[in-house]
Computed example of a mutant assay.
Amino acid sequence: MNRSPVLVAYALVMVALIVTVDVLFFRDHAWARLMVNVGIVLVFGAFYVRFSRSA
């Protein structure tokens, strides 16, 4: 099965979430914004690793 469309959708959801959180909550807080963005990427990465092996 070709996973390319699923990976693109997964990445787009991650980017949309990061941009939304940045704009709504952390517009003027650079370090907090960086930490939250890294956290979001790590959580998405953990979910990808966890659920990509079972597929």
Rank of each mutant, 00 (worst) to 15 (best):
M1Q: 12
N2I: 11
N2C: 09
R3E: 10
S4W: 10
P5T: 01
P5Q: 00
P5H: 00
V6N: 07
V6P: 05
L7Y: 09
L7I: 11
L7K: 09
V8S: 03
A9M: 07
Y10T: 02
L12W: 03
V13G: 04
V13K: 08
M14Q: 04
V15Y: 01
V15P: 00
V15W: 02
A16Q: 01
A16T: 01
L17N: 00
I18W: 00
I18F: 00
I18R: 01
I18E: 01
V19S: 05
V19A: 06
V19C: 04
V19Q: 06
L24H: 10
F25W: 06
F26G: 00
F26Y: 06
R27P: 02
R27C: 05
R27N: 11
D28L: 04
H29T: 14
A32C: 06
L34P: 00
L34E: 03
M35C: 11
M35H: 05
M35I: 13
V36T: 00
N37A: 10
N37P: 05
V38T: 13
V38P: 07
G39K: 10
G39P: 05
I40N: 02
I40C: 04
V41N: 09
V43Y: 11
V43S: 11
V43F: 14
V43C: 11
F44Q: 06
G45Y: 12
G45S: 15
A46D: 13
F47G: 13
Y48I: 10
R50K: 15
F51E: 10
F51C: 04
S52V: 14
R53I: 14
R53W: 14
R53G: 14
S54D: 15
S54Q: 14
S54G: 08
